[in-house]
Computed example of a mutant assay.
Amino acid sequence: MSPFDRPTPEEHAELLAQIAPLPLRGRAWPRWIGAIAWIFMALIAVRLFIVLQLTPDIALPLPVVASLVVCFGALLWMSWHMWTSVTEISDWGIRQSWISRREVSWADIQSTKFIPQLASKKLVCFVAKGRPVFFQAGSRELQTAFAHISLVYRKKT
């Protein structure tokens, strides 16, 4: 028996019945995490504004200012994706909108691991080829579904 024996069709059907109705959609990140990200962005913006208002004799060199602005833009982009990202569990598999789309079909999942962290509950899906795929659950329904998926698709020993 391989440690990556997939669930039987009956076990998979029972799993989908447990997490029904499908598709199940929810925030990928908890709202409070997104709010904290935006608060930090506001604090960084205020500090960046203060730095840019310095007199020319004590101002930062232009390449340093440019790199600060680029880094701030990247943080804004990540904060936006944290705020708007959605995770979906469907008959096809699991998808999450993120900076790059994350998705894995049920047929590709070899095993899973549920990681209950403080900030975000995660499901790691190990696939036959390639790197593991990480999904976040920001809602109670998704967290419960991730726990059920992890039990059915856990690595068998």
Score class of each variant (00 low, 15 high):
residue 43 L to R: 01
residue 41 M to C: 14
residue 20 A to M: 07
residue 61 P to S: 11
residue 48 L to A: 07
residue 62 L to W: 10
residue 20 A to N: 05
residue 38 W to R: 09
residue 54 L to Q: 15
residue 40 F to R: 00
residue 58 I to T: 12
residue 37 A to D: 14
residue 60 L to F: 01
residue 43 L to E: 14
residue 29 W to L: 13
residue 46 V to W: 05
residue 24 L to A: 06
residue 25 R to V: 02
residue 52 L to T: 00
residue 23 P to S: 10
residue 28 A to R: 11
residue 18 Q to M: 15
residue 33 I to E: 12
residue 23 P to A: 09
residue 46 V to S: 00
residue 31 R to G: 10
residue 33 I to D: 09
residue 63 P to M: 10
residue 39 I to R: 08
residue 26 G to M: 01
residue 24 L to Q: 09
residue 48 L to M: 04
residue 60 L to D: 03
residue 54 L to V: 06
residue 55 T to P: 12
residue 54 L to G: 03
residue 53 Q to F: 03
residue 28 A to I: 06
residue 23 P to V: 04
residue 47 R to S: 09
residue 57 D to V: 11
residue 16 L to Y: 00
residue 56 P to K: 07
residue 33 I to G: 13
residue 21 P to R: 09
residue 37 A to Y: 07
residue 50 I to M: 12
residue 39 I to L: 15
residue 44 I to C: 02
residue 41 M to R: 08
residue 45 A to Y: 00
residue 16 L to V: 02
residue 42 A to F: 15
residue 19 I to C: 09
residue 34 G to M: 04
residue 23 P to R: 04
residue 46 V to N: 00
residue 55 T to F: 09
residue 62 L to P: 04
residue 39 I to Y: 11
residue 25 R to C: 06
residue 44 I to Y: 03
residue 52 L to H: 02
residue 39 I to K: 13
residue 20 A to Y: 06
residue 38 W to A: 10
residue 29 W to N: 11
residue 22 L to K: 05
residue 35 A to L: 15
residue 29 W to C: 02
residue 52 L to Y: 02
residue 63 P to Y: 13
residue 37 A to E: 11
residue 29 W to A: 07
residue 37 A to W: 11
residue 60 L to G: 00
residue 39 I to P: 09
residue 39 I to H: 08
residue 20 A to P: 08
residue 63 P to A: 06
residue 29 W to I: 07
residue 55 T to C: 01
residue 17 A to I: 00
residue 61 P to A: 06
residue 20 A to L: 05
residue 33 I to H: 13
residue 18 Q to D: 13
residue 58 I to D: 05
residue 57 D to L: 08
residue 26 G to Y: 02
residue 37 A to T: 10
residue 17 A to P: 03
residue 24 L to P: 03
residue 22 L to D: 03
residue 27 R to L: 14
residue 63 P to R: 08
residue 45 A to I: 00
residue 54 L to P: 02
residue 35 A to E: 13
residue 44 I to D: 12
residue 31 R to Q: 13
residue 53 Q to N: 14
residue 49 F to S: 13
residue 20 A to D: 04
residue 39 I to Q: 12
residue 36 I to F: 15
residue 38 W to Y: 15
residue 57 D to H: 08
residue 47 R to K: 05
residue 59 A to F: 02
residue 54 L to D: 12
residue 23 P to F: 04
residue 17 A to V: 00
residue 38 W to P: 10
residue 21 P to K: 10
residue 15 L to Q: 07
residue 45 A to E: 03
residue 24 L to D: 01
residue 57 D to S: 13
residue 60 L to N: 02
residue 51 V to T: 05
residue 33 I to L: 15
residue 21 P to C: 06
residue 29 W to E: 06
residue 63 P to I: 08
residue 61 P to D: 11
residue 45 A to N: 01
residue 40 F to C: 06
residue 49 F to Q: 12
residue 50 I to R: 13
residue 30 P to H: 02
residue 55 T to D: 13
residue 38 W to L: 15
residue 63 P to K: 09
residue 59 A to M: 01
residue 46 V to D: 00
residue 48 L to P: 00
residue 34 G to T: 11
residue 54 L to F: 04
residue 44 I to M: 09
residue 51 V to H: 04
residue 50 I to Y: 11
residue 41 M to E: 15
residue 38 W to T: 06
residue 49 F to H: 11
residue 52 L to E: 10
residue 16 L to F: 02
residue 32 W to E: 10
residue 26 G to N: 02
residue 48 L to V: 01
residue 59 A to K: 08
residue 37 A to R: 07
residue 48 L to S: 05
